[in-house]
């Protein structure tokens, strides 16, 4: 595999890492019993959602 393809594979793996933690954040949002924590989970979600959608 040439190094440019390898870099692309690494980038794909990063989207997987992003998705993995986004799922955990969303799960935390629905699981929490604390209103303030829920809001913070919501704010924390934003960069992960935007990266997943390749918008930021």
């Amino acid at each position: 595999m040439d190094s440019v393809t390898l870099s692309t594979v690494v980038m794909v793996l990063y989207y997987c890492i992003n998705a993995f933690f986004l799922v955990a954040i969303v799960a935390g949002f629905f699981r929490t019993r604390n209103a303030q924590e829920a809001v913070l989970y919501g704010i924390m979600m934003v960069p992960f959602v935007l990266r997943m959608l390749r918008l930021k």
């Binding site: 933690f21 799922v23 955990a24 954040i25 799960a27 935390g28 699981r31 924590e37 704010i43 924390m44």
Partner: peptide
Amino acid sequence: LLEVASTTVHNLLGLVGIMVVVGI
């Protein structure tokens, strides 16, 4: 593995949360 990910995110909620908010 998934449960540990949830625990990690929960434990880091304050830390990651503050970094996001400081950026704003």
